[in-house]
Amino acid sequence: MGKARLPAEEVTGLIRQEVPGSQPVFVDPSGARRRRIRWAAYAAGALLVLILVAVWVSQLSGPAAPPARPPCASGACTR
C-alpha cells in the first residue's frame, strides 16, 4: 500500500498554483504612504497622551466641591 499525497500538495482546479517570482500586488516605492500612516499614528498617540494628562491633572487637582445649596424659598430652612 502506498501513501496518499497530502491535500496541501495536490494540484486542484479550485486553488490556482502561484507562479514563483510573481510581482507584488501593491508597491509604494516612494514611501509616501508609510510616512503618512506613521505621522497619523504619531498624531493619534500625541492626542491620547494629552487626554491622559488631562485626566491625571483633573484627578490630582483636588476633590470636587459639592454644588452650592439653593437658598430657602420660605425663609425657614429645615434640615
Score class of each variant (00 low, 15 high):
Met1Trp: 03
Met1Arg: 12
Met1Phe: 03
Gly2Tyr: 01
Gly2Thr: 13
Gly2Ala: 12
Lys3Trp: 14
Lys3Cys: 09
Lys3Ala: 08
Lys3Ile: 05
Ala4Cys: 12
Arg5Pro: 13
Arg5Val: 04
Arg5Thr: 07
Leu6Trp: 11
Pro7Gly: 02
Ala8Gln: 11
Ala8Lys: 08
Glu9Gln: 15
Glu9Phe: 07
Glu9Ala: 11
Glu9Leu: 11
Glu10Arg: 15
Glu10Ile: 12
Thr12Leu: 04
Gly13Tyr: 04
Leu14Asn: 03
Leu14Ile: 12
Leu14Lys: 13
Ile15His: 13
Ile15Phe: 11
Arg16Pro: 10
Arg16Tyr: 01
Gln17Pro: 06
Gln17Leu: 04
Gln17Asn: 08
Gln17His: 06
Glu18Ala: 12
Glu18Gln: 14
Val19Pro: 02
Val19Leu: 09
Pro20Gly: 06
Gly21Glu: 04
Gly21Thr: 06
Gly21Phe: 08
Ser22Thr: 13
Gln23Ser: 03
Gln23Arg: 14
Gln23Val: 02
Pro24Phe: 02
Pro24Leu: 09
Val25Phe: 08
Val25Gln: 08
Val25Ser: 05
Phe26Gln: 15
Pro29Ala: 06
Ser30Thr: 15
Gly31Trp: 07
Gly31Arg: 06
Gly31His: 03
Gly31Ala: 08
Gly31Asp: 08
Ala32His: 11
Ala32Gly: 10
Arg33Phe: 07
Arg33Met: 05
Arg33Asp: 13
Arg33Tyr: 07
Arg33Glu: 15
Arg34Ala: 15
Arg34Asp: 11
Arg34Gly: 11
Arg36Ser: 06
Ile37Val: 11
Ile37Met: 13
Ile37Tyr: 04
Arg38Pro: 00
Arg38Met: 02
Trp39Gln: 15
Ala40Asp: 02
Ala40Pro: 00
Ala40Gln: 09
Ala40Cys: 03
Ala41Thr: 08
Ala41Lys: 07
Tyr42Phe: 10
Ala43Met: 07
Ala44His: 01
Gly45Cys: 12
Gly45Ile: 08
Gly45Phe: 07
Gly45Arg: 09
Ala46Ile: 10
Ala46Asn: 01
Leu47Gly: 15
Leu47Asn: 02
Leu48Lys: 01
Leu50Thr: 12
Leu50Phe: 04
Ile51Trp: 01
Ile51Glu: 09
Leu52Ile: 10
Leu52Tyr: 02
Leu52His: 01
Val53Asn: 04
Ala54His: 00
Ala54Val: 10
Val55His: 00
Val55Arg: 01
Trp56Arg: 08
Trp56Ile: 15
Trp56Ala: 15
Val57Leu: 14
Val57Lys: 04
Val57Gln: 10
Ser58Pro: 00
Ser58Thr: 06
Gln59Trp: 02
Gln59Thr: 03
Leu60Thr: 09
Leu60Val: 06
Gly62Phe: 03
Gly62Thr: 01
Pro63His: 04
Pro63Trp: 01
Ala64Arg: 14
Ala65Arg: 09
Pro66Gln: 08
Pro67Phe: 03
Ala68Cys: 01
Ala68Asp: 08
Pro70Phe: 00
Pro70Ala: 15
Pro70Ile: 02
Pro71Leu: 11
Pro71Ala: 15
Pro71Met: 05
Pro71Asn: 08
Cys72Ile: 00
Cys72Asp: 15
Ala73His: 03
Ser74Tyr: 01
Ser74Leu: 06
Ser74Glu: 09
Ser74Thr: 15
Ser74Lys: 08
Ala76Pro: 00
Ala76Cys: 05
Cys77Tyr: 07
Cys77Gln: 14
Cys77Ser: 12
Thr78Ile: 09
Thr78Asn: 05
Thr78Tyr: 05
Arg79Cys: 13
